[in-house]
Design a protein around this nucleic acid. Sequence first.
DNA 1: CAAATATAAAAGTATTACTATCAATATATA
DNA 2: TATATATTGATAGTAATACTTTTATATTTG
Lengths: 228, 228
Amino acid sequence: MKNLLQSVRITINDKLYVKDPESSNLGKRIVEESIIMINDIGFENFTFKKLGQKIGSNESSIYRYFENKHKLLLYLASWYWGWLEYRLVFATNNIPDANAKLEKAIEIMTQATEIDLAFTHIDEVLLNKIVINEYSKSYLTKEVDMENKEGYFVIYKRLVNRLSQMIKEVNTDYPYPESLASTLIEGALHQYFLMDHFSSLTSCDVNVTPTEYFKHIAFNTLNIKNNG
Amino acid sequence: MKNLLQSVRITINDKLYVKDPESSNLGKRIVEESIIMINDIGFENFTFKKLGQKIGSNESSIYRYFENKHKLLLYLASWYWGWLEYRLVFATNNIPDANAKLEKAIEIMTQATEIDLAFTHIDEVLLNKIVINEYSKSYLTKEVDMENKEGYFVIYKRLVNRLSQMIKEVNTDYPYPESLASTLIEGALHQYFLMDHFSSLTSCDVNVTPTEYFKHIAFNTLNIKNNG
DNA sequence: CAAATATAAAAGTATTACTATCAATATATA
DNA sequence: TATATATTGATAGTAATACTTTTATATTTG
């Protein structure tokens, strides 16, 4: 996909890093290669030492950018959700019809990720895989309430909120807009995971997309006929 | 809740333990106290050393029952899903009407957990909290395909399968029974988590239950009027 | 060119996730 | 009841992790 704006920058809570990784070449390499490496060996096996070896830098230098790998994961996830939010707003902004708008929104939120050439040092396809496989671990912790207060999840929350607003616009009387929005976003990640590892637990495959499934859920539960 | 059967035993894949924890007093204490401790300090902070100190036993003795804490988590989760499956089968077995049966099933799968006095050394309420907060971590790993082959997730898969069969009985033409079943089960865990930590992302609270929300989703998406 | 800043290298610490060994104790069986 | 066997406990040890600290060396900027 092509980016119409010259330079969009995803703004991330500055408490998530010690030094802004966008501010230097080393910082960008840390982000770029950590995405490849986490996707490759998984978050549990990923260490700053290994990353340092891969990018020809030192463990201690990486600690000058991120306090620990947990915060790096939160940074990467925030970037991903910020990028999705940007695409969501951009794609739905000019659609006046509430139904068509929600339909487009569900497409953006549930379709397979394609590369975005506007951000050269970030592979969005791999980042999407990381979010599918690792995002839950960033909030399923004993520190979640404290970190939520610090604003580590604002972008994600804003995104769910935007989607629930669109749901409300389609049907003002629907009693569960927030739950439906969170179910669509979290559920999409889960269905993609099941496609890869537990195919018997999902109806989705190469022919049936999660997008189709979630559109069916949304428009039936909102008692609106599905256009798609 | 009361158990009508004298002694039901949840059967768990014997590859998940080195020595059956049900076979000795120490084994039962390991299970009993690990549930309390994991719920208390979280799975990441939980270690066999700490558990040993708490139960007045030795780290090395615990290793004689479970290879590592990951397998203990898989054991606890299997027990939980096995218990839910037993309750599901028991509660729906004698219901002839497919709609009423599915409705009952959704209740069992999404309602707040109550203590089951039949299993004295297991606190089902705490175990439910562990499943909400930690279950994803048991499968979001690089070893998931291998462990799936070893049968570590059979009970969970059987449970999702039972629910999707009930969905099919309600509406044979519905194209996504497996996805709906997995969404209901996983989605319920997620909504409970959101109620505790991200209340703005869910429509559920003390008055609106996840059960109500998921019944609405299921019966509307299946184009059947909801009884509940 | 000097000063400030960024990065690299190396060493050190506490904790984790085990494994191995051996002693103590409980239990089963002859 | 004596003995064999299994179970548990105590201690020590190892490699890896997740850092922190210190010092040296580049690089940038004023």
